Simulated assay, not measured.
Amino acid sequence: MVGRKQMLNQSNPQVIINREVVANRWTRVVANEEGVVSVPSEGAVLVPYQYWLNNQTELAGREIAVCFAPDDEPESLPVDANTFAMIACDFPAFTDGRGFSIGRLLRERHGFTGELRAVGDVFKDTINYLSRCGFTAFDVRADKDIVEAAKGLDDFTEHYQSSVAQPLPLFRRRGLVA
């Protein structure tokens, strides 16, 4: 059984933001086994998106960020995405890639320009692909070396496909260089 303190703060002390390892100022809260979310009374707090939807009035005036679960729909966001300084997407398992799509939708369809953070099962092998979908921050899995994980951003020097990070595919970029 996971202790109460662990259920409240699921964040690592450090994260990668804009290619740098920095102190994590956000406290991530998740629901316990009974589905109860306990939000600290002060500080920057990352809450589940569904919790925020149901408790917007209670959370008004707080420094709040939301975390989309894999089955949450960005289209259901009732406010401009840029209302939040940070939005996170949860990757509960390496095999669950729905967060990639959520991140890309937030950037391309909803025009989100703030910090887009990947949380959960995040490690070196996924970071480069996450950045191509628009993620700028990474809460690396606790059992992984965060400095080593940051090196994953440089695993590839060139990409064929277009992405949030590079809207033109390689064949179009090559035609521009004469």
Rank of each mutant, 00 (worst) to 15 (best):
F84N: 09
E58V: 09
F138V: 04
F138C: 11
M86G: 05
A85I: 01
L170T: 09
V22Y: 06
L105Q: 11
D155M: 09
F171K: 12
G175A: 15
L77R: 01
V37C: 14
V2M: 09
T136V: 10
V36W: 04
C67M: 15
R141I: 10
A69L: 04
A85K: 03
R62Y: 01
F68M: 06
F112H: 03
T57G: 06
R19S: 12
A165Q: 04
L46G: 07
V21H: 08
G120N: 12
I64H: 00
Q56Y: 03
P92K: 14
G120L: 10
A69C: 05
F112A: 01
D143V: 09
K5D: 05
Y49V: 02
A65M: 06
E63F: 01
T126P: 03
A88W: 11
A150G: 11
A178G: 07
G61L: 01
D121I: 14
L130Q: 10
A88I: 05
E108N: 14
A23P: 02
V45N: 02
V21N: 08
V164G: 09
W52A: 00
Q50E: 05
V30N: 15
T136L: 00
E108M: 11
A149R: 03
L116P: 05
T27L: 02
R141N: 13
S163Q: 10
V15R: 09
Q14L: 12
V37Q: 09
R117C: 10
K5C: 07
L105N: 07
V164K: 10
L77Q: 04
D90T: 14
A23L: 13
D154Q: 11
P74F: 15
L153D: 01
R132W: 00
F100C: 03
V36L: 14
T27S: 04
G134V: 03
G3T: 06
V37T: 12
E33I: 12
G175C: 13
G103V: 11
D72G: 14
L53F: 05
L168K: 07
A88N: 11
G3H: 08
Q166W: 07
Q6M: 14
R28G: 02
F84D: 04
T136A: 06
N24M: 10
V147D: 13
N82H: 02
Y49K: 10
A142W: 08
P169D: 13
L105I: 13
E73P: 02
F171L: 12
V147L: 14
R172T: 10
L53H: 03
